[in-house]
Design a protein around this nucleic acid. Structure first.
Length: 150
DNA sequence: GCCAACGTTGGC
DNA sequence: GCCAACGTTGGC
């Protein structure tokens, strides 16, 4: 899962009550579908910081609640408000995420590209802007192994 | 701050 | 339902 740390960082997640937060604001259908159909309770999540000096995977989190309607979508006060979404007919969903760990050092894109098992990783494909992307077990484990070495 | 690569919108 | 115009994302 991608996030701009200036908006919501891994440290922000860690600072939340019970280190858990609602993942509000996903407003892309493909990302929504991945979140709705692919994310199960207990699933591990790689946490990626984008639009920063060193874009990098910085740690991990875990899904503690599966997809349910994103209430910020019908909150006129929210910056994620969508007039076409309502409690009766919610268009967007969110999951709840709990902080798991912060890597000793962030794994930047350049470094990730050097890991052979990540050759096909969606994150590393050019033009990839999706904020929610499926990660294979093999990719996940390769990232964690690399993180532990550092 | 540039710009490539997407996604969305709306006229037709 | 096509597609040009526009908006956004995000690495560089």
């Amino acid at each position: 899962m991608k996030t701009e740390p200036s908006v919501f960082s891994l440290q922000d997640l860690k600072a939340c009550p019970e280190q858990t937060a609602e993942w509000e604001g996903v407003r892309n259908y493909q990302a929504r579908n991945f979140m709705r159909d692919g994310m199960k309770k207990g699933d591990a999540v790689l946490f990626y910081h984008s639009a920063t000096k060193v874009p990098a995977i910085v740690g991990s989190a875990v899904v503690v609640r599966e997809a349910y309607p994103d209430h910020s979508s019908w909150d006129p006060e929210s910056k994620y408000f969508d007039a076409k979404s309502s409690p009766d007919n919610p268009r967007w969903v969110m999951v709840d995420l709990r902080y798991q760990q912060e890597f000793a050092e962030p794994l930047g894109l350049e470094e990730l590209r050097k890991i052979p098992q990540l050759k096909e990783m969606m994150l590393l494909r050019r033009g990839m802007r999706l904020s929610i992307q499926p990660v294979t077990k093999r990719e996940y484990e390769a990232v964690l192994r690399r993180a532990e070495v550092k």
